[in-house]
Design a protein around this nucleic acid. Sequence first.
RNA 1: GGGCUGUUGGCUCAGCUGGUUAGAGCGCUGCGUUCACAUCGCAGAGGUCGCUGGUUCGAAUCCAGCACAGCCCACCA
Length: 894
Amino acid sequence: MDKASIAPPDAVLTFSEKNFRPSVVEGELYDWWERSGFFAPPATPAPGEKTFVMMLPLPNVTGDLHMGHALGFGGYEDLMARWHRMQGDATLYLPGTDHAGIIAQIVVEKELAKETDKKGLTREQFLGEMWKWMRHYQPRIYGQLRMLGCSLDWSRVHFTMDPDMQQRVRTHFIRLYKRGRLYRADRIVHWCLTCQTTFSDLELLHVERTDQLSYVRYPWADAMPDGTPDVIVATTRPETIVADTAVAVHPEDARWKPFIGRDVLVPLVERRVKIIADEAVDPAFGTGALKVTPGHDQTDFEIGQRHSLPIISAIDKSGTMTGQAGILSGELRDAARARAVEVLKQRGLLVRQEPITHAVGIHDRCQTVEEPLVMRQWFMRMKELAAPAIEAVRSGKIQIVPAYQEKIYFEWMENIRDWAIARQIWWGHSIPAWYCRDCSEIVVPDEDAPDPTACPKCRSNDLAQDPDVLDTWFSSALWPHTTLGWPERTADLARFYPGTMLETGYDIIFFWVARMIMMGIENMGDVPFRTVYLHGLVRIGGQKMSKSKGNVESPVGVIQELGADTLRFALVNGVSAGADSELSEGKLQNAREFANKLWNIGRFVLRTLEARPQTGWAADRRPVDDAALGPAERWILSRTEAAIAEATRLLETYHFGEYVAALQQFAWGEFADVYLELAKSSLRDERRADGAARTLAYVLDRVLRLLHPSMPFITDTLALQLWRALPTDEGAPSLVVARWPLAGPRDLALEERFAVLVDVVRAIRNLRQAAGARPGQRLAVTLGGETGAIRELADAIAHLTQTTVTFGGGAGPAVVVRAVEVRLGIEQDAAGHRARLERDLAEARDALARSRELLARPGFAEKAPAAVIANERAKLAEREERVRLLEAEIARLA
RNA sequence: GGGCUGUUGGCUCAGCUGGUUAGAGCGCUGCGUUCACAUCGCAGAGGUCGCUGGUUCGAAUCCAGCACAGCCCACCA
């Protein structure tokens, strides 16, 4: 496609209001960018072209964007994508959404519950409704991503439940199964009584809760000698006593060691069980004796496995006590607990109760207290999958930013447990496994084969497909390669895998990042990305945002009010990798003011250009160092090169917060506050006006390029207008595809002199204020000391201070100009001038003493680097001179 | 129980491969402003860089311990 063939929108080219109004241009610009194909890299590379590939951390299809998304997508990811695109990399930033399994199903169930005719739906009907909702939600979230300005390649958008994606997940499951990575077994799993599904370890959260800890006596099964201690166990779940199949003690616990192997009777059911020894028991807790309930407790299940204990299921999926529960059967879990305590009390087996604060497991999606149940489930063997994924990070093939997150990654990966991948819900990827009703054989078809209709073992046609679906993360773990066409060997896959960057929040490093690394290596033989950049949470008013706190600020609302650029800039400003951040009103306000500042800088430059002929100019051509350029021009040009180098360095090292801050400082503090003011005077002088105008255009061009990754809308609006007034040599149709600037040579000596100028200007301004000079009122000031270095800047000083400057001259070390303020002869007496000088003198003497002390310190001369010593010597000379001048000035006044 | 991170002006945070006078934004004080921008300009006040030791010529920066805050992991029933 000819990228220049579509003209930029008129609304953008002609927008010229005094204040920038994002709503006028943002939508128009984004449409134009997208239609122009700027975001869609071709699958065939140009010679020597590098790629930059980053997958959008696919948001849930059912949600709206929240601030965390805005920070990740708009703040960091799009910034990186745009920066790389400007460097000429073929940049793929691939969008999509996640079907969000349980969450989406809960959302839609709630919606359907409001409609009376939508109750009691069949599975097929319900899935029909799910799809209806998907089609409703999806454009909404995609629209919000566009509002943020994300330069996503919409021609490659994917949804985890698209038919082709479903096929790819099916293939993945089958391959893993055939390779022995998957197995089905009776194991204890986390069960949610509300959601009626299992969930993985990662989805289990813990909350502190206070419960009653009951001490219960388990009578000896056989007669014991006098003085034998009672076996008393402590439990918070007395209702599970009926499912106990042992009592465990620590093997080294002297109190219990003699009784290991003896039998006790489980209360309520009078079952004879053994006292066993197991390391898992904490001898310090309770009495040191633990009731073992393999059917309803994770630890106990593992103890049971080690000792081949029978498993009794006393609670069913609905939370009702089963027929195995003896006298408790038929009761609900909580009622059964009370009943158990009551009966134990009656029988004299309840020794005592005390309150205990402990952690209870809850389901992260609904906060319901989990019920561990033993069920036949699909699991993924993780140990072997984790090994190469650990190695990939350890060897540096994948870099995690910030680096300390690597420790957390290793910690989890090295202790990884098998992953329960099935969910007992309807919305999700079906499991391509069938069970023979006659011989119980598991039938998993070959990857290209149709669904099986007969059991290969017993020839029965009575097959039933597994009714469960796969965990949402099972499919999102494949995102970096399935979106590119895997398992087919597509051109996209060849070109864009492995990817470059994965940017996301640190809260899903295990859920998503680790699993993508494992599955990428498993399916592709290579890691899915080279760098993982993790960002923190966004807080508002010091608190983590959550709906229950009511402090969820919608990024969409902020964009509509203040613009995407403002939000993007504010989110990233002053934030470092991995750190949580605070999005305050003040930050947003500052970002908005900066955007407006930029807009007005642009207006000033455009107005300047309008008035002059521009033969032989180009906006991106650096004005040559000729007679038309005054010192101010040469200075800002040099500072521009510094800003380019600094911005590039900060981006290369992922210091995004500092990158935006540095550019704000340059554009506002140097370009606008200093140079623009100076340019006004240059523009009045016909000999220098052209040089000033060209400098304004060039520096603006650079500033716009440098800021475009963070503030794409306002920068492109200005660039399009600037380039229409003054075309570029490059000829890029938009900043989106314009080149990132390369830093050129600087004039460090001039920059240093200008730093002196800034000091002098400040000193004069202070004097004016002290002298009570009115604005516009001219003052004559004489500069003393070695002023040669700044003489050529006299006009600049005069302009910036509205003061007539004369130079007293005088030879001496160059540093004397730093003390210039003491020699300023102001014609009228300045109130407080002398007090000010006294104070300065005291400070100067302190500084001098510090320099002397440091230079005289034993070891300094021998051990400090030469540059540091030289610097300190120069400082000493400067300070001596300053003290001398201050003393002289005070003496003169007196 | 294990681990991670943070503690820098009133607030929110940068800086920390050790080396000028520790920075920014907001807030605050004073002055100013038709002429790109009041979404503005200028000036100013405000910090023993959590505490205690150590290494070093030199520590906000490196090391150890401690305190406080937050987070993650974990089979304390």
